[in-house]
Nucleic acid binder design. Structure first.
Lengths: 224, 224
DNA sequence: GCAAATTAATGATTTATTCAAG
DNA sequence: CTTGAATAAATCATTAATTTGC
């Protein structure tokens, strides 16, 4: 089934003729027909360029059969090349924890960049690693705290003041949320961009080309 | 339906003491205790380099930066270069929906890049917009479907077959999840990097200086 | 008719869960 | 088991439509 994806897609291309397709595909946006510039663009939007016939030796052909990922033995525990995950060094962890202790929770893009540069002195690292580290650390500290408080409720000794606030969701449920010095939902201050190339041109594109074929239409990845 | 949501919070805050329970408080919106953040870690690690006293006008390399949003006199609705959010054009929406219909759900970095380039022909857009669009669209389609299925349960006419799969979480709860052609939790195939500069050098920093100064340690952001 | 006040949509973020490498 | 990585859910925040009072 995976193989028909492209086919199916091209089918959608009939769209090239319609001024806009609107009708055909219900966009149902009840309220707002943002009709302004109807005339312009009749542009077909050359999706053909998307297909990129050469986009790689995909495996979609043999489709789902053996997902098995394979070879790519590349025994380098080394950071990056192919697809190993970030393996923080002691210094990096130390610094990150220090920052966390200092109160940092959700660094914005600029902060992340700076941190990444600094930590880069101790080992390979990318911005996303820093981002994820804070996300995970925060979440796990929270869990841990919750667990411990739960445990303490069993043996009511040390009260363990851990401030949490309950809040009602729109659905009426009541959830509990740790109160942090850092408030969630700040202003928009982070910005990310997709850096797809970095991985692509990552040195030898050979060994790990197996790395999840970048299909254009992963209709039935059968993952998970 | 009464969506007075905006008001009615602000209350509670009794935290500080009770381990938790605190039932009565509804939906508080902490709104910034505004504690005097005297923390300022005495940094061991040369955080000094982080501060970057001149963290003002960036535009680091000006390298590719093909973005040039500026004037773009196209006499258009041209999104405000400042900090407004992406406002998709009809063509962009049309294409995105077409792709969605074609089965695309969580495009990887490369796909996002290509889509962004194509959609860029119809108006300013960034990769993250594409990413978010898919995330939101997928989630909202799911909601919609769930709602409708729920509604149909009341009036059992049209059965509305909507395949959902139930799965048990680690905690033992059973959740329902829409079954999509695209499976969640695929392999790692996306990659992002924080592009903090772009926003920084965003033209005149005057009118909305209120825009959250990028502090390094948002201990008590008072935001939200 | 028109502009302020409402409301519905939906873009952008953050938190919660889950997966899986080591 | 620990934890980096990634996705889904919840929710905040801004804008386009719609409604309302003149």
């Amino acid at each position: 089934m995976g193989s028909m994806k492209v086919h199916q897609f091209t089918r959608g291309l009939i769209w090239e003729h319609e001024p806009f397709l609107t009708l055909g595909c219900k966009r149902l946006r009840p309220l707002a027909p943002k009709l302004p510039n109807t005339k312009t663009i009749t542009t077909p939007f050359d999706l053909k360029s998307f297909i990129r016939p050469e986009s790689g030796p995909r495996k979609p052909v043999s489709s789902d059969d053996t997902k098995k990922d394979p070879p790519s033995p590349q025994g380098q525990i080394e950071t990056h090349p192919g697809g190993t995950r970030w393996n923080p060094t002691q210094e990096q962890i130390g610094i990150l924890e220090m920052l966390y202790k200092g109160g940092m929770r959700t660094p914005n893009a600029q902060q992340i960049e700076q941190i990444t540069v600094q930590l880069g002195k101790y080992g390979k690292i990318e911005g996303k690693n820093v981002f994820y580290w804070f996300q995970n650390h925060k979440a796990r500290e929270r869990q841990k705290q919750k667990r411990s408080s739960l445990a303490s409720s069993h043996s009511p000794r040390t009260p363990t003041i851990h401030s949490v606030v309950t809040l009602e969701t729109t659905r009426g449920e009541v959830v509990e949320r740790d109160h942090e010095e850092d408030s969630p939902y700040k202003k928009k201050c982070r910005r990310w961009v997709f850096d797809c190339l970095e991985e692509q041109n990552m040195s030898s594109p050979c060994e790990q080309e197996e790395h999840r074929t970048l299909e254009l239409f992963p209709l039935h990845p059968e993952g998970r």
